[in-house]
Design a protein around this nucleic acid. Structure first.
Length: 862
RNA sequence: GCGGGCGUGGCGGAAUGGCAGACGCGCCAGCCUUAGGAGCUGGUAGGGUUAUCCCCUAUGGAGGUUCAAAUCCUCUCGCCCGCACCA
């Protein structure tokens, strides 16, 4: 209170302060009040939930795991985080008050490049820097009043955590799901590390936008492609995920059905398989293509006159950046190898070319080319003067006699379906049917088979950087690749003098770390010096929360099965593919390892929209960042939380408006004054909610209160429409301001106002928990955050009468009050009784009468 | 090119077949006040008008279905997002 006085003296003339004080009502002061309640929650550990003592037997029906994506501690929280954590908090607090045991943990995705880059610049150890940032974020989250179980806080860079990340790596390795392979990989010259396919956007590094190069390096991969089919199938197990996220993952996995067909190279004892989605067009294959990087290219041309030209072409391709090669409207290029392949269906010899539009990473790196029915092949054929032979006709009816195709005159490939021509015994068939028939024929001849191909590649997890979990592998001259024994975990990240990347991890410079003893033969050996992709860390953190202090195992199986799966996951759509797919993959592997009982980690996913400012995404480079701390400083956390949810539907992108937040601040001030006036002017006569006999004006407010309870409850629980929930409370507050002066006159009215005030405070609590806790206390109650959520009284939801809309030919002509229980005939009677309706229908014939009770009557006249 | 989303007042948005514009911002007016960047009350889509009355038009545009369309269907324009030589 003393602070309060000083504050006011400083800001306003003394006379003003005295004036306000004489009203015996203090001003809404969010800072004092918010820190008070934050202290209570922190000291009482209000939101900590212990694990059940018998998790295997515990009832799971009332548990709810509410999770927001953990922040990357690069400095401090931005508005997107505030939105994310506020939404999660509203859901968590709402569920808690509805009787759920809410599990709501928090942690930090603390490994990664930014901390390391900052360390290079500042000289601070990445661990120190990370600690500063996580402490800061912890403070920010407390200042937002988020209901977190802080006893479970974790950081993925702690050895107690990454020990288990390494443990999982070893289990993956045992299963053959982690493997090392020399491969052409994406290399970012600026970050000096390799990148996963998922981190390359338009041929450029996701993080720094530098053009990505291709390098051949020995790297560790996780065999996520083994799980492609299950990642697709198990979308069915999800309860509620945004359709577009599922679509994005589906596209990313890129499943295609077709056939693998074996072509034999003439005069050489070599078979080359190709994958095609169009086995029906096999008779139209007039040439054959290899990717320039294909391993057989050298063999095919060695010692032939074509050798030099082909090698030069392959070399040029290698020098091209991924960006250049991804350019789709480039003219087709290629070189003839001088070799021919035999088409298995008709024994025809077709020329083999190399061309850079064939990608080594997809299918088998070789294709059969059907220029009549593939636009890319068509362009190549026209440029190199190769025959275009039509084998699927769009101009014939099924079963009609085949005619000669017009390949020579086509000016584009015909990619649609049709009737087979020029295809031997398959002529006249529908092309889809023919595709299946040809595949069966190939299978019977041993020259091919039905096949499925995926766009998804294995997950490259090696990173040549410092600030990550070391890959727990040892290389021994004698024993080869040896996993670090489990009891030796964690492999601690060693100290280094210089974090700057040099094309290999900075760890490689620490010879004490690198030189070790082989666990197998005890001979001299070297440690792996690469660290793991940080997406590995965040692929299982939600499991560790359930048992974060377990030193003996990553988590207790019964405990993890009790809390998991996550009932509501909330985060940005930018993680639609990367994190969400990796976490699904990880969970499936653990399921197969029999460590967890659930194949999907996140049953419900909500992706929030972004907050824009001045027409663009907030970003430091554009200088249009709105800092949440400043707004907490100015208006308090409650106002910021309320505004951010009031701005619009949470899944849509919205524009931050500087003046908008003023409005929510004013609203909370209005609530503050209203409830305080009720506290002062009415006696707390105890809880007597039966208002059946009260007079009309009071009854109206009782109704509005109950309607608001119903609306807010539905908006939060069924639709996550926080904006409309908040506006409903605003309506109730507005109505109360208009009614209060009359209601204060009577005891009955006072009782109704008390009920209204309790309702407002109770409903607003998930959004603005501090002010509500304070007002609840002033209303003579305790611990609002534990209070049972109010339930609307059915008797007071329905109005006695409603406004019936009267239409003539669909146009509104009049409105009348109708009893709530009136039947169709009564409503029609009311309509006929209207003077305006009579005028409109005069002299005309009513041809149809539409009566929708509760809404309108529409008379159709001629 | 393929896939998905969005388009409503000056602005953020409400309304999921049934009164378009809830709620908030901004703006205008009144009250209160020595004073207001405070508070309270009222008004605010556009056009017409005989002006507290009444009418017409309006949800990117054009058609359609329906007694009734912001909402469903077809075409079209614009913006945003994802994927993109994937055989």
């Amino acid at each position: 209170m003393r602070f309060f006085w000083r504050y006011r003296r400083r800001c306003f003339p003394a006379s003003f302060a005295a004036d306000i004080m004489s009203a015996a009502m203090d001003r809404y002061n969010p800072h004092e009040l918010e820190s008070r309640w934050q202290r209570v929650w922190r000291e009482e550990k209000s939101f900590e939930v212990p694990n059940p003592s018998e998790p295997a037997a515990a009832d799971r029906s009332k548990k709810s795991y509410v999770l927001e994506m953990l922040p990357y501690p690069s400095g401090s929280l931005h508005m997107g985080h505030v939105k994310n954590y506020t939404m999660g908090d509203v859901i968590a607090r709402f569920r808690f008050r509805n009787g759920f045991t809410v599990f709501h943990p928090m942690g930090y995705d603390a490994f990664g490049l930014p901390a390391e880059n900052a360390a290079i610049n500042t000289g601070l150890h990445p661990a120190q820097l990370t600690r500063i940032n996580t402490d800061n974020i912890n403070q920010q989250l407390h200042r937002l009043g988020v209901s977190i179980d802080w006893s479970r806080e974790l950081a993925t860079c702690d050895p107690e955590y990454y020990k288990w990340t390494q443990y999982f790596f070893l289990r993956f390795f045992e299963r053959g799901l982690a493997y090392r392979k020399e491969a052409a990989v994406n290399w970012c010259p600026s970050c000096a590390t390799v990148l996963a396919n998922e981190q390359v956007l338009q041929g450029a590094c996701e993080r720094c936008d530098t053009d990505v190069e291709t390098r051949s390096l020995a790297q560790w991969f996780f065999r996520i492609t083994d799980y492609a089919e299950r990642l697709l199938e198990d979308f069915e197990l999800l309860e509620s995920w945004p359709e577009r996220v599922i679509t994005m993952q589906r596209n990313w996995i890129g499943r295609s059905e077709g056939a693998e067909v074996i072509f034999r190279v003439e005069d050489m004892d070599i078979d080359i398989p190709v994958f095609t989605t169009r086995p029906d067009t096999l008779f139209g294959a007039t040439f054959f293509l290899l990717a320039p990087e294909h391993e057989l290219v050298d063999t095919l041309v060695a010692g032939t006159p074509r050798e030099q030209a082909v090698r030069e072409y392959a070399m040029r391709t290698r020098l091209k950046t991924a960006v250049d090669r991804a350019e789709t409207d480039r003219e087709k290029t290629g070189e003839f190898t001088g070799r021919y392949a035999t088409n298995p269906v008709n024994s025809e010899k077709i020329p083999i070319y190399v061309s850079d539009y064939v990608l080594m990473e997809y299918g088998t790196g070789a294709i059969m080319s059907v220029p009549a029915h593939d636009q890319r092949d068509f362009e190549f054929a026209r440029k190199f003067g190769i025959e275009v032979r039509e084998v699927v006709s769009g101009r014939l009816e099924e079963g009609e006699a085949a005619e000669l195709g017009d390949g020579a005159t086509m000016n584009a490939a015909f990619e649609a379906g049709g009737v087979m021509v020029n295809s031997g015994s398959f002529d006249g068939m529908n092309n889809l049917e023919a595709g299946r028939a040809i595949t069966r024929w190939l299978e019977s001849e041993g020259k091919g088979k039905a096949a499925v191909s995926y766009r998804l590649r294995d997950w490259l997890v090696s990173r040549q950087r410092y600030w990550g979990a070391p890959i727990p592998i040892i290389y021994c001259e004698k024993c080869g690749v040896v996993p670090v024994p489990e009891q030796d975990l964690p492999v601690l990240l060693p100290e280094v003098e210089d974090y700057a990347p040099r094309g290999q991890s900075p760890i490689a410079a620490n010879l004490d770390f690198v030189n070790t003893v082989c666990p197998g033969c005890e001979g001299a050996a070297r440690r792996e010096t690469d660290t793991m992709d940080t997406f590995v860390d965040s692929s299982w953190y939600f499991l560790r929360y359930t048992d974060p202090h377990n030193n003996a195992e990553a988590f207790n199986r019964n405990v993890v099965n009790y809390w998991m799966p996550v009932d509501q996951y909330i985060g940005g759509v930018e993680h639609a593919i990367l994190h969400l797919m990796y976490a699904r993959f990880f969970t499936k592997v653990l399921y197969d390892l029999d460590m967890v009982d659930f194949p999907e980690p996140f049953h419900n996913l909500f992706t929030q929209g972004m907050i824009y400012y001045r027409g663009a995404k907030m970003s430091k480079s554009k200088g249009n960042v709105v800092n949440p701390d400043e707004h907490v400083e100015k208006y308090g956390a409650d106002t910021l939380r309320l505004y951010i949810l009031f701005m619009g539907p949470p899944e849509l992108d919205v524009e931050w408006q500087d003046q908008g937040i003023e409005g929510t601040y004013r609203f909370l001030g209005r609530v503050w004054r209203l409830v305080n006036e009720v506290v002062e002017r009415t006696a707390d006569t105890g809880y007597t909610p039966d208002f059946t006999g009260v007079e009309k004006r009071a009854l109206k407010l009782v109704r509005k209160s109950n309607q608001t309870i119903a609306k807010v409850t539905a908006d939060i629980s069924e639709r996550y429409r926080f904006n409309t929930a908040i506006s409903a409370v605003m309506e109730l507050v507005n109505d109360s301001y208009l009614a209060k002066d009359a209601l204060f006159e009577t005891d009955e009215g006072g009782g109704v106002l008390r009920f209204m005030a309790r309702t407002v405070v109770s409903l607003l609590d998930p959004f603005a928990p501090h002010i509500c806790a304070e007002l609840w206390e002033r209303l003579g109650h305790e611990r609002l955050w534990e209070e049972t959520w109010p339930k609307a009284d059915e008797r007071f939801i329905q109005e006695e009468t409603y406004e019936l809309v009267l239409q003539v030919n669909g146009k509104v002509r009049d409105r009348v009050q109708a009893p709530a229980n009136a039947g169709k005939d009564d409503l029609l009677e009311l309509a006929r009784g209207s003077q305006k309706i009579a005028t409109c229908t005069e002299g005309k014939k009513v041809v149809k009468e539409i009566v929708i009770p509760g809404r309108l009557v529409n008379l159709v006249v001629k």
